[in-house]
Nucleic acid binder design. Structure first.
Length: 604
DNA sequence: CTTCTTTGTCATGCG
DNA sequence: ACCGCATGACAAAGA
C-alpha cells in the first residue's frame, strides 16, 4: 500500500495540476472536473481493487495448479513473479507495483528460463492462467521506461475513469504517431501490451493481438496463438487512472500520449468484445504479419467498427498518405484517404471533383461552354471549396467518432467527438487537438494557400491536365505550345487564361507593391540624406559667414593702420573723413579725397 | 464596431 | 492589334 500510495500522491497532484491547466485553457476534458479528483478516483480504485482481489484469488488458484506442474521447471522465480502477492497483504491488492522489478528481472535477466520458454510452458499447460500471469509481468516491465509508481496503479484502475480521460488523450493526439513509434520501440512496453491484451481478451488468437511480441520473438508467437484472446482485459493494464497519472507526470513525453491513447482504447475494446480487433488498434502496422498465424478477423470482420476506430486513432496524426496506406478494406476510408492524398497541399484538402455536390454543378457550368468565370461562379466555387473543406474535416473527425461509436462505448469522449464532427467549421488543427497556438502566419499562409488552391480547384473542376503553377509560370511560347498540345474546350481555355492572367497579375501586384515599398524606403533614405546635406550646408554657411566677418574686421583694422601711417607735405596725418584709400585693378593704391562726401557734408 | 493592413483581382495605360 | 507588364483602385478578409 505504501509503495502505491506514495507514487500515487505525487502523480495525482500533477494530474490535478494538469487538469487545472487544461481547465483554465478551456479544454474540454469530456467530463466533470471532479472526475479527475484523486479522492474520486481513489474510490473507483477501491472498487477496482476489490475486483482485482477476486480475480487475483481466482488466478491464485490457477497458479497453484500451474506451480505444481511447473515446479519441475524451476519456476520458483517465475512463480514469484507471476503470482501476485497474497490477497491479504497490501501488496496483493496492487501486485503490479511490487512485481515490476521482479518481473523485469525474470523476463530480461531470466536466469532459469527464458521468458518465451516459460510462456510456452504456461500456454501448453494453462492458457488462461498464462494470460493473466503475463499481464502482471507485463505490468512490471512497463514501469521501467516510464513511471514505476503510476504504472502500478494501472491494472487496478477501473474502466470507469477512462472516459473522462479520453479528451485529454485527444488533446495529445497530434503526437500520437510519434508516441506510437516511441512506444512500439520499447520492448518492455510491447511485451506489457501484449500481455495485457492476452489477459484482457478471452480465448482467441494471441498472435493477432500480439504482433509486437511476435516480431520480437517468432517462436513465442508461434506457440502463443493457442492461448486465450486477451484483448478484453486490457483496461486493467492501461487503466485510465494509470494512464492519467502517467500522462500527467510526463505530459511532454511521447509514451505518455501513447498510453493515454491506449487507455482510451482499452474501454472501447472491452465494450466491443471483439478481441481480434484490438491487436490492430495497438499494432496496425503489424497486423499483416500477425494475421497469418492467427485468425485475422479483426479488421476484416468489422470494416466500419472497431477496426476503423483503431485506424482512426492511429491515422489521425498521420498524413493522408499514411492514412491511405493504413486504411485497408474499408471503402469509405479508402475513398477519404484518396481524397486527402489527392490534395495534400491545399488547405481545404478537398477537390471539387471529390465533392459530390459541387463538382458536378461546376463541371456542368463550365462544360456548358459558359465562357470565363463570373463572380457568381467564383463564389459558387469558393462555397464549394468551403463545403469540401468542411467535408474533409468531417471526414477526419468522423474517423474518431466512428472509433468511439464502433467500440460501442458511448463515453463522454465519443460524444464530444461527435459534437466536434457536427461542427465542420472547426479547424482541422483544432480537431486534431494541436496544443500549440497557430494563427497569424499560419492563417495568412493558409489563406494564400487556399487562394492558390482555389484556382487549382477550378482547374480540377474543368479537368485541366496541368498544374496552375505550370499555367502561370510557363513562358509564353511554352504556354502556347502547351495549349496547342492539349485540346481544350472553350471553357477550359478561358479558365486557363484567367488562371494565367490572375496568376501573372498576382505576381505583378506583389512585385509592384514590393517595388513601391522599396521606392518608399529609397525615397525615405534619400530624404534623410538630403536632410543631412542641408544641415551640413547650413553649418558650412554659418562658418563661412563668421569667417567673412572676421576677414572684414581684419581688413578694416589693416586699412586704418595703413591710413594712419600716411602724412601730407606738412607731416600731418590725413583725415579719414576727407580721404580714403582705393586700390585699382593693377594693385596700385591711391589716396582719394572724399569729394562727394565733403560736398554732401558741406551741402548738408 | 471601427480602423488599418494585407492580399487578390480588375481595369487601364504604356511600351 | 495584340501581348505582357506595371500600377491605381476596389473588395474581402483578418488583425
Amino acid at each position: 500500500m505504501m509503495e502505491i500510495e506514495l507514487p500515487k500522491l505525487t502523480p495525482s497532484q500533477q494530474d490535478m495540476d494538469m487538469i487545472d491547466i487544461l481547465w483554465k485553457q478551456d479544454i474540454d476534458l469530456g467530463a466533470g472536473r471532479e472526475v479527475f479528483d484523486f479522492s474520486y478516483r481513489q474510490k473507483e480504485h477501491e472498487l477496482q481493487r476489490q475486483r482485482e482481489l477476486e480475480e487475483e484469488k481466482r488466478r491464485q488458484v490457477l497458479l497453484e495448479q500451474e506451480k505444481a506442474l511447473l515446479a519441475q521447471l524451476q519456476l520458483d522465480e517465475e512463480t514469484g513473479e507471476f503470482v501476485p502477492r497474497p490477497p491479504p497483504s497490501g501488496q496483493q491488492q496492487q501486485p503490479p507495483a511490487d512485481t515490476p522489478a521482479e518481473n523485469i528481472g525474470f523476463t530480461e535477466d531470466g536466469d532459469a528460463m527464458s521468458f518465451d520458454e516459460c510462456m510456452e510452458l504456461l500456454a501448453q499447460t494453462f492458457p488462461l492462467v498464462e494470460a493473466s500471469e503475463t499481464a502482471s509481468t507485463c505490468l512490471g516491465a512497463s514501469p521501467a521506461p516510464t513511471g514505476s509508481g503510476q504504472l502500478v496503479m494501472a491494472p487496478e484502475q477501473p474502466p470507469l475513469i477512462p472516459t473522462p480521460m479520453l479528451p485529454t488523450a485527444q488533446k495529445t493526439w497530434p503526437d500520437l504517431d510519434e508516441a506510437w513509434t516511441e512506444l512500439l520501440s520499447i520492448p518492455e512496453l510491447q511485451q506489457c501490451l501484449n500481455m495485457q491484451m492476452q489477459e484482457m481478451t478471452e480465448p482467441s488468437d494471441y498472435l493477432s493481438t500480439n504482433p509486437a511480441a511476435e516480431a520480437q520473438d517468432p517462436s513465442y508467437s508461434l506457440f502463443m496463438p493457442p492461448l486465450a484472446d486477451p484483448a478484453v482485459t486490457q483496461p486493467e493494464v492501461c487503466s485510465t487512472e494509470f494512464i492519467g497519472n502517467f500522462e500527467v507526470n510526463f505530459p511532454a513525453a511521447g509514451p505518455a500520449n501513447l498510453l493515454s491513447q491506449m487507455s482510451l482504447k482499452a474501454p472501447d475494446m472491452a465494450v466491443g468484445g471483439n478481441t481480434g480487433e484490438y491487436c490492430e488498434m495497438f499494432y496496425p502496422d503489424l497486423l499483416g504479419t500477425a494475421k497469418p498465424n492467427e485468425t485475422p478477423q479483426p479488421c476484416n470482420t468489422l470494416s466500419g467498427g472497431v477496426c476503423q476506430v483503431t485506424e482512426a486513432r492511429n491515422n489521425s496524426p498521420l498524413k493522408p498518405l499514411d492514412m491511405q496506406e493504413l486504411s485497408a478494406g474499408d471503402p469509405f476510408k479508402i475513398g477519404k484517404s484518396d481524397m486527402a492524398v489527392e490534395f495534400p497541399d491545399s488547405d481545404s484538402g478537398l477537390s471539387l471533383d471529390a465533392s459530390p455536390n459541387m463538382s458536378s454543378p461546376e463541371k456542368s457550368a463550365y462544360g456548358d461552354g459558359s465562357l470565363g468565370f463570373s463572380d457568381s461562379d467564383m463564389d459558387e466555387m469558393e462555397s464549394n471549396l468551403g463545403s469540401e473543406s468542411d467535408y474533409s474535416e468531417m471526414f477526419s473527425i468522423s474517423l474518431t467518432t466512428s472509433n468511439s461509436s464502433g467500440s460501442g462505448a458511448n463515453t463522454p469522449t465519443s460524444q464530444q467527438q461527435k459534437r466536434k464532427s457536427k461542427h465542420p467549421k472547426t479547424e482541422p488543427a483544432e480537431a486534431s487537438v494541436h496544443s500549440t497556438p497557430p494563427f497569424t502566419k499560419d492563417k495568412a499562409k493558409r489563406r494564400s494557400e487556399s487562394r492558390l488552391s482555389r484556382d487549382e480547384q477550378r482547374a480540377r473542376a474543368l479537368q485541366i491536365p496541368f498544374s496552375t503553377d505550370l499555367i502561370i509560370n510557363l513562358p509564353v511560347d511554352d504556354f502556347n505550345e502547351l495549349m496547342s498540345k492539349h485540346q481544350l474546350n472553350e471553357a477550359q481555355l478561358a479558365l486557363v487564361r484567367d488562371i494565367r492572367r490572375r496568376g501573372k497579375n498576382k505576381v505583378a501586384a506583389q512585385n509592384c507593391r514590393k517595388r513601391k515599398m522599396e521606392n518608399i524606403v529609397g525615397l525615405e533614405y534619400d530624404l534623410d540624406s538630403l536632410k543631412e546635406e542641408r544641415e551640413r550646408l547650413l553649418r558650412e554657411k554659418t562658418e563661412q559667414s563668421s569667417s567673412l566677418r572676421q576677414m572684414k574686421q581684419q581688413l578694416n583694422s589693416l586699412y586704418l593702420e595703413v591710413f594712419g601711417m600716411l602724412r601730407d607735405e606738412q607731416g600731418r596725418p590725413y583725415s579719414p573723413a576727407e580721404y580714403s584709400l582705393q586700390q585699382t585693378s593693377d594693385g596700385t593704391v591711391f589716396l582719394v579725397p572724399r569729394v562727394k562726401k565733403t560736398l554732401v557734408k558741406s551741402d548738408g
